[in-house]
Design a protein around this nucleic acid. Structure first.
Length: 795
DNA sequence: CAGTGAGCGAGCTTCCGCTTGACTT
């Protein structure tokens, strides 16, 4: 047995370090936190001094038992968790749970997984920093108190299963605020003037230095341009340079992967996890832009060898963000020699991004020569400007260019043709185009992470889970939206004549953007009204300052919590007792047909519109209609609401049964003889007639017949169907997989029942949970997973 | 892929941050 036990957080890290340390050291991983606050509402002694009660998490019991055994056998235990607040706490919990004496324990830290860094760490051990541990306890306790006291208020005042917290509630607020900003945004327009010239067969564009507010002003300007001379008045050449971006942190990786290859933040993280486990990149949850000495050196070697010494510019980046804890390196390839890797196409693309960004960060600046040609117009004081860029030295641009969030059509980067001052240009046309202002863009998952990071809210390990949580709770939806059409005016001066065109453009179309739901808005407003402090964008920053004081030993952690909890808990009690139930009710107007009032509100089954009052009179019952996807109680108009009451619509009859048309969760559909048929996009649910409906019903019957591959006389419930992923077994409402090699023609009933029996044995719990309500499904899955995990360990 | 929407009461939900798998129709 080896004399030294080293405990790190990540198993991949353990493997690497073991190689560096030799046979006297056993390196094990504890898989992050091993203990947490107990699950219930009484984990913290709020009546006393806020003493927390911890318990070993279920999924950590096995690893803790193993570490206990190994630590007993070892002479020295080296606690090598990360050097930040959470890492220090992990070491403390380990020392508590493993009953480690001070004499037997060494606390070591390193920021990079390189041999010299590890050996240096072993040379200079220290004790556990209890102040830092206390800062973590304060963080943990505060988050539990906020989350577990606020959420029940929402269950009472809004609806069940909702949640609130220091991080998620502010994330939702950002989305809600942005949506409202967009809703009240007033588009204004101005005319942008562009002249096009023919310069020895090539076209050059030049823009007027100002825009015109009205069409009349633009027209007056073009009038003056008729027959005018356009002369090169001045040529200015300005050298400039462009610097590479620092290597990736978690947040910047998520942003670039979203912009350049369209991955959501969870996708990016799970692919990065694979790359990390395969030893191809450094740790992917980091807030640091720092690179190890070794990495900088090997990048330099690689760049010098492959591109030449003029491309090398070794650079040490420093993190500007206050909240950064810098326990790890920036995300980089482990070996710069690995230009390409083996792996799935997704892995290759993400690796390529990480590789290029890291190598570019160690490369020279690009040298650019910018040319501005000023063009005067005879008889007019205003001038036009044509700009061009020439890349004098590509530097880092040889491998990588960072993208930006706003999709402004990029200007420049074009070379100007050779020009001479005094030269009179040959005009093709002058065009004044109406351009509209745009509101701030809706958030993508990645741009929301960027904003949260700027506010110091959340950590690299929680960005992706937070984004999932707010979607899972139904506060926020990731959606595409069709743009709307609008007209714009274009005036063109060509061959001394001015032409006016009205053209059409699409605006406001969105792809994978975050939209708030009614519930998201209700909860944000409710929390904002009663818990202003928690919803304040500066709340996390201000508590972080206090955590820092605790870490420096200038503040006692439970005193800090006490000061926060007193007033907070009083507000919780007060709100819980006195606030009204929130349903976002709004009066839209009067139904012209019945003269009754039309309302919208959010009820048990979601947002709906209602005509008429609730009353006891049976005949006077109000009419109801659910709002459609994308409609909000806050913004829906009376006209839009009235449309909702037009469905379901009786289309006609077929085979003595009614055909009805309506819109459901998956879009427009027909229902006939209790069978559902989707209405294709080319048909209009409000206008579809009986003949067309029958055509669709008959089409559906044919495709259903093709779907059925085999039936068994032994049991009519059992069928072989052709699905999206090939043939499968259906029994009643349950589906079962067929082995890929199985030929459908050769299937017998006995074989099918065997497969079903086998599936039910292994996936019995899963099958049972399928029937349960969706909410319970999650819980059932979790316990099932835990049980199997526990079983595995016993073996 | 229904249309539903009162109120009662039981029992359930929930936080953030550190780690991986185990899930795939």
């Amino acid at each position: 047995m080896s004399k030294n036990l080293v405990i790190v957080e990540s198993p991949a890290k353990a493997k690497t370090i073991e190689k560096f340390l030799g046979k006297d050291f056993t390196v094990k991983s504890c898989f992050g936190h091993i203990r947490d606050l107990s699950k219930g509402d009484d984990a913290i002694d709020v009546k006393g001094d806020f003493t927390p009660s911890y318990e070993v998490s279920d999924d950590k019991k096995a690893i803790v038992a193993e570490l206990k055994k190994l630590s007993k056998e070892a002479d020295l235990v080296w606690l090598a968790s990360d050097e930040d607040r959470e890492g220090e706490a992990i070491s403390w919990h380990l020392s508590e749970v493993l009953n480690l004496t001070e004499a037997k324990t060494r606390r070591i830290v390193f920021h990079e997984i390189t041999k010299p860094a590890i050996l240096r760490a072993i040379e200079s051990p220290r004790g556990i920093d209890k102040n830092l541990v206390d800062a973590q306890q304060a963080r943990r306790v505060l988050d539990r108190l906020v989350g577990f006291e606020l959420s029940p208020v929402l269950w009472k005042k809004v609806k069940g299963n909702l949640s609130a917290g220091r991080v998620q509630s502010v994330a939702v607020r950002l989305i809600v605020d942005r949506e409202r900003e967009i809703n009240v945004f007033e588009h204004t327009s101005a005319f942008r003037v562009i002249a096009r010239f023919n310069i020895s067969g090539k076209q050059m564009e030049a823009e007027l230095g100002k825009r015109f507010a009205t069409e009349a002003e633009a027209k007056a300007f073009l009038d003056k341009c008729v027959g005018a001379n356009f002369t090169i008045k001045n040529l200015e050449v300005k050298p400039s340079e462009k610097s590479p971006a620092p290597p990736f942190t978690t947040s910047t990786l998520q942003q670039e992967a979203s912009r350049k290859i369209g991955y959501g933040v969870s996708t990016t993280m799970s692919i990065a996890q694979k790359l990390y486990e395969n030893g191809l990149i450094t740790y992917m949850r980091t807030d640091s832009v720092n690179l190890s000495e070794l990495a900088i050196e090997s990048a330099k070697e690689y760049i010098t060898g492959n591109f030449g010494p003029q491309y090398s510019r070794p650079m040490r980046y420093t993190t500007k963000n206050d909240s950064a804890q810098e326990a790890h390196e920036a995300i980089r390839p482990t070996y710069f020699e690995n230009v390409e890797i083996e792996g799935t196409p997704q892995e290759k693309r993400l690796y390529d991004l990480i590789y290029k960004r890291a190598i570019a960060s160690q490369m020279s600046k690009a040298q650019i020569e910018k040319t501005i040609a000023t063009i005067s117009i005879s008889g007019i004081p205003e001038t036009l400007a044509a700009t061009g860029e020439v890349l004098k030295f590509d530097g880092f641009l040889k491998v990588y260019l960072e993208s930006t969030d706003d999709d402004q059509e990029d200007e420049g980067n074009k070379m100007l043709p050779p020009l001479i001052v005094g030269e009179i240009l040959s005009l093709i046309q002058v065009q004044a185009t109406e351009k509209f202002t745009r509101p701030a863009a809706r958030y993508t998952e990645a741009s929301l992470v960027k904003r949260l990071e700027e506010l110091g809210i959340g950590r690299p390990s929680t960005y992706a889970p937070t984004i999932s949580t707010i979607q899972k709770r139904g506060y926020v939806l990731k959606e595409d939206r069709e743009g709307k059409e609008r007209n714009f005016i274009q005036l063109t001066l060509q061959s001394n004549a001015i032409e006016r065109d009205v053209k059409m453009e699409k605006f406001g179309s969105e792809k994978s953007k975050l939209f708030p739901s009614d519930i998201g808005m209700i909860v944000t407003d409710f929390l904002g009204k009663h818990f202003e402090q928690i919803m304040d964008f500066g709340f996390t920053a201000s508590v972080e300052e206090e955590f820092d004081k605790i870490a420096r030993g200038q503040l006692v952690w439970n005193k800090m919590i006490e000061k926060f909890y007193g007033p907070f808990h009083a507000t919780v009690t007060n709100t819980s007792e006195n606030a009204e139930r929130q349903n976002a009710e709004r009066t839209l107007g009067i139904d012209p047909e019945s003269g009754k009032t039309v309302y919208v509100k959010v009820g048990r089954y979601g947002p709906y519109a209602q005509i008429g009052e609730n009353s006891d009179d049976e005949k006077e019952k109000p009419r109801y209609a659910s709002l459609r996807a994308g409609q909000l109680t806050e913004t829906i108009t009376l006209a839009e609401a009235m449309e909702l009451f037009k469905l379901p619509r009786l289309v006609g009859t077929f085979e003595t049964k009614d055909i009805k048309a309506s819109i459901g969760r998956f879009g427009p559909y027909l229902v006939h003889n209790s069978k559902f048929i989707s209405i294709p996009k080319t048909d209009d649910v409000f206008a579809i007639d009986e003949a067309r409906a029958i055509e669709l019903i008959e089409g559906k019957r044919i495709s259903d017949a093709n779907k059925l591959l085999k039936v068994f006389p032994e049991d009519e419930e059992v069928k072989i169907l052709n699905g999206r992923w090939g043939p499968y077994i259906a029994k009643g409402k349950e589906n079962y997989r067929l082995p890929k090699t199985q030929k459908v023609e050769e299937l017998t009933f006995a074989m099918v029942t065997d497969i079903i029996a086998a599936e039910q044995k292994t996936g019995g719990k899963k099958a049972a949970s399928k029937k349960a309500a969706p909410v319970k499904k999650v819980a059932a899955k979790k316990t099932a997973a835990k049980k199997t995990a526990a079983k595995k360990v016993k073996k």
